[in-house]
Design a protein around this nucleic acid. Sequence first.
DNA 1: TCTGGGGTCCTAGGACCC
DNA 2: TCTGGGGTCCTAGGACCC
Length: 407
Amino acid sequence: MVVLSNNDGCLISRSDEAKVLGFKMGEPYHQVRPLLELSRVKVFSSNYALYGDMSRRVVQVLSEFAAGVEVYSIDEAFLDFRGMSLLAPDLQRYGEQLRERVWRDTGIPTCVGIAPSKTLAKLANRLARKQKSSVKMLNNEADCQTALAQTLVGDVWGIGRRYARKLREQGIMTAADLAAQPESWVRRHLGGVVGLRLWRELHGQPCLEWNPAEDGDDEQLPPATGRHSLTHTRSFGRPQHELTALSEAVATFAARTGEKLRRHGLAAHLVTVLLGTDRYAPGIDSATRTAVAHLPIATDDTPLLTQAARRGLRRLHRPGVAYHRAGVLLSGLETAGQGQLYLFTPAAQLPPARPQLMAALDRLNNQFGRQTVRLAAAAGPKPAWEGWRAYQSPAYTTDWENLWQVK
DNA sequence: TCTGGGGTCCTAGGACCC
DNA sequence: TCTGGGGTCCTAGGACCC
């Protein structure tokens, strides 16, 4: 079985059998499609509503096992065991219990890595998965050394393809080799302070921030370091030239960013529009061009965001150019309703804030489906630029139509 | 017809300011 | 030989993560 990226573009997830058959992560679907059919591999479009909901359920279980849970990605979380008085053997057992509970309540298999730093915990988790032991603990010098020696340098969290190659060229093959380098060398060759943090983390010295889940049924958490930006971008099903179509796309994307903003209780000062040509066309100085609009006061109001985004688009758009991708990026984020007051402009002249209207909009769209109510500037149900999703599985846990079927 | 999307952090050059 | 120094903003790009 394989799962495809948005627009059914690339292979982004593969079962063990598909891996054995030689299908690679990130391979373009259209290139391997005949081979997939020949091998009778089941193909699925990605289904983020389903994954998001299952992820939420797993996190719910995790939060019963530690005071602090940091949701790092859709399928990973850090648990804060500081201050817990469990001794090593009990900690191991605790990890196993956690895993059993997640399995029982969600049917999702997990692995647990326990270590003094995030980077070492990731490394331990990886070994747990490889060694089929499900829980791996690194709580003394000897175990850490063994684990580092068993890990290729490219498999360390924070070492990507480029750094891995560079390190290998220097004869640094394993995480242990990297940890053995002098600090100054690491600082010089591995992106400055970024590399330094990584190196210290490998030595069991926590250097990465603890960012607990913002979630918050009851907030007694440290100040949210929060996110700095929020985007919605899409590749088009086919290239778009016309300002009208692009404008509809950008308005639709702006509305999505507005929804995300309100869900997180944030407001944005800066609205960036991105417009991209064909990334794969040879020779063209392709790439993405951007335009930024500054809002006088931070807002989470969809009409204002849309207006700003469309203004930016008009500045970017060149007639006759084939655009393959567009997006809206919001930055300069702050907590909604806690913004700087405006000194010189009388309140009556400020852009209108319509929290109730936005709340009503979100309620309707949550209840009756995305885009049930939208701005006229946004695109209708089947826009020309929308891509494919040919093999979508049902979102059983979130889609009320499917819930009825299950009944 | 055809190659994902959402993030973070860091660096650099050009245009501009005083 | 020799060209000020300290800023900001904008845009772009490189590295990494999932």
